[in-house]
């Protein structure tokens, strides 16, 4: 039996269905990320687990115990807020000890636990600081220490890196995952940022319109998105609807007709194309719309028949793109790897 089992949970605000019968299970120590655009219900789902919203229907079991009628403050969960929600009238240590004080733990134990937590997040020297004397990254650490101090069964994280700048976010992401794994806490993490989700999670659940579209490991989700929404949300844009390639006679449609058995929509991932001829790759002629060097890759936007395709080409491959440019209107061959093609359901 899973440690945290959410089944068929339901929540509406007025006529808006925020969470539409979601079921989700987390194993002990697992980090699962809810990924989706704003308004997809991911934060509501998190707040339902926290008890900050009350469910219209469904069940939440934590270690076998039903949480639905348990008030938030008795659930024994930890939560990190996007704003951190650090108490501005308390010091770092007072923030971290707050949950322990509410639980009326004995003072020596509190002192010990606070020290332990501050060491965990590498904030040892700063325990008497006021919150407004901390940098954004330091506040994030205090918020983490505070939410872990009570040894919660589940840690809920609501875009905890959302208000940090990009560089700091990347650095803290690895650190955060390392700490969560070290503590061994079961974590549910909400974000709209794909790279953040992939960086932190064991499994990613992509959400849309109150439902989970797909849940799997980052790698599986990326190379085998289940439908057009997931593909598009992950930035995989070359989706060709079924009606558009079954009948058409351009090079790409002919290739697809030859390679695929079903008549579903198909995703041609941007990494499926190369500029050099290789064994097993299938050439098609494309008309260049634009070409630009982007550092780690080069972006080619081109047209075949009615289809517009984007490819991220490897500029560093041998005999490849270095020093070359393409003009709009130029017709060039692109070599496609059909084994990367993904058939989508809807």
């Amino acid at each position: 039996m899973s440690y945290l089992a959410i089944s068929n949970i339901q929540k509406s605000f007025g006529s808006t269905i925020a969470v539409d019968g979601v079921s989700l299970s987390l194993e002990r120590g697992e980090i699962v990320c809810l990924l989706g655009p704003s308004g997809c219900g991911k934060t509501t789902l998190l707040r339902l687990v926290a008890g900050l919203e009350s469910a219209d229907g469904g069940q939440i079991l934590l270690d076998g115990q039903d949480l639905v009628d348990v008030p938030t403050y008795q659930r024994g969960i930890g939560m990190m807020f996007q704003s951190y929600a650090l108490f501005p009238h308390m010091t770092v240590a007072q923030n971290v000890s707050y949950g322990l004080r509410m639980a009326k733990e004995p003072a020596p134990l509190i002192t010990e636990r606070v020290a332990e937590m501050l060491e965990l997040v590498d904030m040892v020297g700063l325990k008497d600081r006021k919150i407004d004397q901390l940098s954004g990254g330091q506040q994030q650490r205090v918020a983490l220490a505070r939410s872990l101090a009570t040894r919660p069964g589940v840690l809920l994280l609501d875009e905890p890196l959302g208000s940090l700048d990009r560089l700091l976010r990347e650095r803290l992401l690895d650190e955060l995952r390392a700490i969560l794994k070290k503590v061994g806490v079961t974590a549910l993490y909400v974000t709209h940022d794909q790279s953040e989700a992939f960086g932190i999670a064991d499994r990613v659940a992509v959400m849309n319109l109150g439902k989970i579209e797909q849940i799997n490991s980052p790698q599986e989700i990326y190379i085998r998105p289940i439908n057009r929404f997931v593909a598009n949300f992950l930035g995989l844009s070359n989706v060709i609807a079924s009606g558009l390639w079954l009948e058409a006679s351009d090079g790409l449609s002919q290739l697809l007709q030859a390679e695929l058995k079903s008549g579903f929509a198909v995703l041609i991932p941007p990494y499926a194309g190369a500029i050099n001829k290789q064994d097993g790759l299938r050439p098609i002629d494309v008309t260049v719309l634009s070409y630009s060097f982007r550092g780690r890759f080069a972006l080619l936007v081109c047209q075949v028949g009615e289809h517009i395709l984007e490819f991220s080409l490897d500029p560093y491959a041998e005999n490849g793109l270095m020093g070359r440019t393409f003009e709009a209107g130029q017709v060039i061959p692109i070599y496609l790897n059909p084994s990367h093609f993904v058939e989508l359901q809807g």
Binding site: T72, F81, F87, G99, R146
Partner: peptide, 24 residues
């Protein structure tokens, strides 16, 4: 968020009023 954070940390309604709202 502050009051809710206190709630997730185990503070009851009364405790939240005295330790968070009133000092703030």
């Amino acid at each position: 968020d502050l009051s809710q954070a206190a709630e997730t940390l185990g503070a009851s309604r009364q405790q939240r009023f005295w330790t968070i709202t009133l000092p703030l």
